[in-house]
Structures are given as structure tokens and as C-alpha cells.
Design a protein around this nucleic acid. Sequence first.
DNA 1: GCGACAG
DNA 2: ATCTTGTCGC
Length: 318
Amino acid sequence: MAPTPDPPDPDADESSRFGFDDIAHPEFLPDPTLSHAEMESLQRELAATATFADDHGIDPAAVAIDEPADLTDGPPDARQETLPGTDADSDAGDPDAPVVVGLDQAFLTPDDGEDRAVSAAVAIRDGDVIEHASATTPLSIPYIPGLLAFREGEPMLAALDALGVEPDLLVCDGSGRIHFRAAGVATHVGVLLDVPSVGVAKSLLCGVPDEPTDGRPEGWRTPVRADDSVETAVVDGDASGGDTADGDAPAAPVIGHAYQSRQYPNSRRVNPLYVSPGHRVSPATTVDLVEALCAGYKLPEPTRIADAYADAAKRDAS
DNA sequence: GCGACAG
DNA sequence: ATCTTGTCGC
């Protein structure tokens, strides 16, 4: 009945924490036993490895989603693969379109003192959910602003590992380059797997929007630039060292965008999204991709649908 | 010391 | 993120 694999049991084997067979940079695995200082220096090294420029070959139009998923009766079923020779005039999506994977987590209340995360990964191709997977993993550290990847990275990897398809693009909950050390969760996971990724956050961790964001119309966007809390020297594309030829203060680098994905015509009270590159995507393309992935709701469809799966998996777990 | 802080 | 019913407004 279930078109996707059942939740794996990542806690079973101590020796292979992630079991993921395609970790490009195992040295950046989010080891929760590190000290905070060690976590931060790991993030700096990781940021130096990250690419905040386009290196993916994905046309936003090729991943555009027009119809929002109906989540009123729970998450959608994965679309059956069209059988060869069957259904000649298939209305199934383009099998050559890029695979976008949305990731989201839900949390189980610590009944016995053990915090656990339920993470969901949803693979979407040409607007259809082609596969989904979830995993339940123990949470080793509490939420600490700036160190989110060390809390949620393992759950995200576990859900990705349970997925059968290769992602062409990861859409993560939280920031990427909009981060004190340019190493938000989206960047962390993207670099670990060396897969293009973007971060979608509902609030701003750091940086400053070029313009005020209140009451903006749908589709509006403005750059978010680094502020004093953001370390920028290490990152590629920002090697100027802070000096300009004429001695004027250089413009702070763009680290992401505020993007108004949804707005009501008159009330104008929806907050914008804060989107930033994870890995191998530029800030500008990140907004274009997120815009293409939105279908009328505030959150892009991959995130919305992953949300629904995470909630459903959490319900099943309790 | 104070302020700020994704999920 | 999570604890939670109804409710005011698109």
C-alpha cells in the first residue's frame, strides 16, 4: 500500500551514524559531541567549501509548480510510476524534469527525557510527488541560534538516505548563507552531499534587508545584506577584503533576499520569506527558484508538503 | 554587561 | 519548533 519505504531505524547502528552512501564531505558531518567553538570552526571550514554561485543547470521554469497540493486530507500519495507499455497517453509528469526535494522536521515531546525528531523528505518532479520518506532520530543538542545544523542535520540526512531518488535541488527549512558564518542548515546539508540547495526561513536570523519589509505586495523582493554579525571574509565571491579603489565604504555583500511569497490585497499583514543560497546556487537564482516553487501559499510547495508528511509521521509515532 | 538570535 | 479553540478577515 505504502508507495514509499517505511521509516528506517537510524538509531540501530552506532557505527554508521548516517548510513548515507553518498556523503561528499564526511569531515563536515554535524557531530553533536563537538564543543560550540569546534562547531563554529567546522562551520567556517564548511562555508569556505560552499559555493554561492550558480552551478546546477536548473531553469526555475523547469521546476515551477502551478497548482498547490490539497493538504486538507493529509499529505498526498506519491504518484505511481507509469508502467512501461501502459497508459500510452500518460498524464504523468515529465520524467526528465529536475527532482526537487523538500525537507522538514517535526518534534516529539520529550516523554521520557529523550528528544526525538521526525524528519520528512519529499521528492517532487514536474509538480508531482514521486516519492517521500521519513525517519525518526534522537536529538542530541538543544536549539541554539547559529548551530541548527548540529541539531537537525542528522534527522535531515536520515530522511534523505531513506529516499530512493537522487535530488537535483534541496529545499531546506531555515537559512543557508543568511548565517553568522555563512553556514546555515541549507548550506551544511548541501555541502555534505554536494547537492544544490536553498534555504527558506520564516524569520530573519541575521543581515539587513535593503528596504523595509512591512506590507509588501505579493512577488516583492529585496536583497538582504551582511551586517556586523556576519563573517564575510572567508566566503568566495567576497575576496575584496573590505576595500575599494576609491576608498568608499564597499556595499555589504548580498547574502539572501526577503521575498513576499503571499499577500492579501488589502490587509497586507503576511511576513515575507527569507531565502538564501545553500550551496551551488546564487542569491538571485535562489529567489527565482523559490518563487517558481510557490503556488499560492506562503511556503513553497516542497516545504508545505514535507510539513504535512512530517506531521503525519509524528502522529503515527504517537 | 546588553542586545540579537533559523527551528 | 511546541502547547491549543475559536474566530476575525481575505
